[in-house]
């Protein structure tokens, strides 16, 4: 009986999860460009990443991301402050390659989730624009539906900060990304909140950003 009640409660909670409602502006007209925080050119970013996990466990690493938006190519690495490479992987249209994965990154699922998080931060949604309008807090939002049924909301709030929300096909919030508008570079300060079986918050602070020249990009990626 107790289990049944738990299941019923879970079903009720799941049923309550839904995408935020989008409505037109007061005048009913929607005239704005969708927020576009994504890099347009090949770039290399180095971030200090603080991870906060349940139980107020905090740790920090350095993340290196090489993004080539045209080919949706991402190459990334996570290293400790002491210089040890914990994880190194790349993703492109032709698939994913994990070059190195030491604990706690040594499972295919963790690697895949990390690559998906990185793509969500740096690459625009692949899906079609589904809806455009305003949220109840007057943020401008553009909603995309991905091929797997997930929804991606790219929104700009009244103070100019850009946020990304990733929702499951049933409307459950999976990821929330906030690009803090504290400097000229939109990648200066990023917060990524994961709502999953294992919740975590990543606070990313930019250490270095370099545009990739064609020559160095080739040297960096293709041997």
């Amino acid at each position: 009986m107790k289990n049944f009640l738990c299941l019923l409660l879970m079903a009720f909670v799941m049923a309550c999860q839904s995408l935020p409602t989008i409505h037109p502006s007061g005048s009913g007209e929607i005239h704005f460009d969708c927020a576009d925080p994504f890099t347009k050119h090949p770039y290399r970013f180095v971030h200090a990443i603080e991870a906060r996990m349940p139980g107020d466990v905090r740790s920090s690493v350095i993340g290196i991301t090489l993004v080539e938006p045209a080919g949706r190519f991402i190459s990334c690495a996570i290293i400790t402050a002491e210089g040890m490479t914990l994880w190194e992987a790349e993703s492109s249209a032709s698939g994913t390659i994990i070059h190195r994965a030491l604990p706690p990154f040594d499972s295919a699922r963790v690697s895949q989730n990390m690559l998906e998080d990185i793509k969500l931060v740096f690459l625009p949604p692949q899906g079609q624009l589904y809806q455009k309008g305003y949220l109840s807090d007057e943020s401008k939002v553009c909603r995309y539906q991905e091929e797997n049924g997930d929804w991606v909301d790219v929104k700009e709030n009244k103070s100019g900060n850009v946020e990304i929300g990733l929702y499951s096909s049933s409307g459950a919030l999976k990821r929330q990304i906030l690009f803090k508008k504290i400097a000229k570079d939109i990648y200066q300060s990023i917060e990524l909140q994961a709502d999953a079986i294992f919740d975590y918050l990543l606070l990313m602070t930019l250490i270095d950003a370099q545009p990739i020249e064609q020559e160095s990009k080739v040297n960096a990626n293709i041997d």
């Binding site: 290399r44 180095v46 350095i62 290196i64 090489l66 190459s75 990334c76 690495a77 290293i79 402050a81 002491e82 210089g83 490479t85 190194e88 250490i207 270095d208 370099q210 990739i212 160095s216 040297n219 960096a220 990626n221 041997d223």
Partner: peptide, 15 residues
């Protein structure tokens, strides 16, 4: 001074 060299980096990461 610690310098980390990787293929993904065009110049070493200096700590």
């Amino acid at each position: 001074t610690q310098k980390k060299f990787m293929k993904i980096l065009s110049r070493p990461l200096v700590s």
